[in-house]
């Protein structure tokens, strides 16, 4: 599977700002196909986990109410430049992806 995640992390003054973009349709399951009138099945990211040195710094649980191709940003302290940061997601169909990047 092609990489579906873009992640940028920047350390400044002890606080690391993480920004990530994921590619995902984020179907709520409530939408109907205009042509066929059939309900489009739900397909959305349920869980996003971000780890720094094996410790979870942020874990998000989502409903289908998060926009298509989701964007998140958050901050945490205690990381240094050059550290690895890993972000992964799991959707309601059991698919998952993860990406590791270096903190700049």
């Amino acid at each position: 599977m092609a990489k579906s995640i873009k992640i940028r992390a920047k350390e400044k003054g002890g606080v690391t700002t993480v920004k990530a973009l994921m590619t995902h349709p984020m179907e709520t399951g409530g939408r109907k196909d205009k042509k066929t009138g059939k309900t489009i099945p739900a397909h959305f990211i349920q869980e996003v986990v971000c780890k720094h040195k094996g410790n979870t710094v942020m874990m998000a649980e989502w409903s289908g109410g998060v926009s298509k191709n989701p964007y998140i940003s958050f901050k945490f302290s205690g990381a240094a430049k050059g550290d690895d940061i890993e972000l992964g997601w799991t959707d309601n169909t059991g698919k998952s992806d993860s990406m590791t990047s270096k903190i700049k």
């Binding site: 709520t28 710094v57 942020m58 998000a60 649980e61 989502w62 998060v66 964007y71 958050f74 901050k75």
Partner: peptide, 20 residues
Amino acid sequence: LVANFVMGPGATGFVSTRIK
């Protein structure tokens, strides 16, 4: 309920995202 972010130790009270 759109999203719930569980912050680990060290994380600050800041999140940004896009919702429907």
